[in-house]
Every structure is written in structure tokens, then in C-alpha cells.
Amino acid sequence: MSAHESEWTLRRLSAGELAATEAARVQAHAASCEACAQALRGIHEAQARFEADVPFERFEAGVEQALRRQRDAARPPPRRWVATTVAIAASLLVVVLVRPLLGSSAESGDTGGLNRLKGGATAELRIGGGLGPQREAIPGRPEAIEPGERVMLGYKAGTHRYVAALSVDAIGEVTPLHPEDGASAPVASGGRQHWLPGGWEFTGSGAERVIVVLSDEPLPQETLVEAARRAFAQADGDVERMDELEVPGAQTHWVLRKP
């Protein structure tokens, strides 16, 4: 065991987070150990420098600005998504491109690769529109996407009545994809596979988690966004390690790795 206290213990002492007996023991050690006393002084000095360099007003203004940034980022910012009209046009292109693939699996009755959910439901994420081949992303297996590639989301509702989609990027920004606001939308009629309108182009870099939720009741997007933020925090800010959202219904997650 080290003769000195760890920096972490000294930092927690300085922050007033040690229990009284532990704090007294560490303080007593630091009083008789020059190395630890010096380390403790270093921590105090760093905090004093911080308080001198960053006055409270500037700190407060900076945090408020960050809060606004985070709130704005939770809305669908135009820079991350193709504009609606462009998205519609793009989706037509993507639909044309994916049709042969959809046809081949649907016609053969082969649903391999589709993510089966309870109640006879399935969900699917297709990538296309770029220079690379059309392909399907598999849940649990991160899929790299190239610049310019677009994503389409499909589902077979089974017994579920509502559908919603959202995404979470590498820094925890949550964006409702479908619908963009309000509550999850009623599923399209008929038991066949349906595609959500439009397509999405994910810009920026790092990982992006895409989630489709099929439910029996409409779920407000605010509820889904909050659940996604909680899951992101519970994954220690690692979007690739997020668990399922704590919401009712069946959900499918995919992880895309942007260039």
C-alpha cells in the first residue's frame, strides 16, 4: 500500500466529500507528510486560480449558454438533416434504389435480417443513396456510413398501433425523427412492411444511435427524448453502450458510425 494518499482522496478531501473520520485521518496524514501537503496545496491553488480566472458571472453566463445550446440541439437542427422538401425528393431516390432489395426479400418470403419484435412486428434500417452498396444495418452491429448516404426506416407493426423514431448522437443530443414533434404516429394500415416518410442524412462524425419504437398507445416525443437522455447518462455518455429506453412498447436500436 502506498505511503501517500492518492490524489483522488486528496481531491475529495478538498471538495469536502470525505466522511468525517476519513477526512480527519487524511488531514492528519497530510499535516505530517510534505508530499501530500504539497499535493493538497496544489489542488487548493488550482481551485483558487480557477475562481480568479473565471468570475462567477462569466461561469454562470457560460453555463446558461451551454444549456441553450443543449436545448437547441435537442430540436432537429437544419444543419444535421436534409430539409423536408429535399428529404422528400431524396426519399424518392432512395425508395427507387432500395426497391429491388426490398422486392427480393419480400418476394422470396425471406425476412432474414429483419429485426423481429414481439407481436409479429419487425423493424428495418436501410442505408443507401451514396456511392457504396445498398445495405441493411443489423441491430447490435455498428454500421459505418459514408458521406452522402441516407437512412430509411421501415417497420411491420404487427399488433402495435403507433410508431416513433429518434436518434442520439455521440454527445447525447437527441433528435426526434418521426414525428418531429407531438406524439408517436398511428401506424400505416395493412400488415405489410411500411417505410417512414422521408429519409435522413446524418452529418457530422462519431456514432449515432437510431431507435424505432412501436407501441400500443401514443408516446409523446418529449417522453421518448427524456428516456433517451436518461439511457445516455446511464451509459456514462457512451452512445454505443446505451440500453433500451424505459418506455412501453417494442423498440429496435441500430448504431451508425458516421465518417
Partner: peptide, 9 residues
């Protein structure tokens, strides 16, 4: 603010 020094560091 009391943890600011550690976080900024």
C-alpha cells in the same frame, strides 16, 4: 463552482 477547478483541469 467549488468543483470548477477540477473539471476545468
Amino acid at each position: 463552482m467549488k468543483h470548477g477547478g477540477s473539471v476545468l483541469g
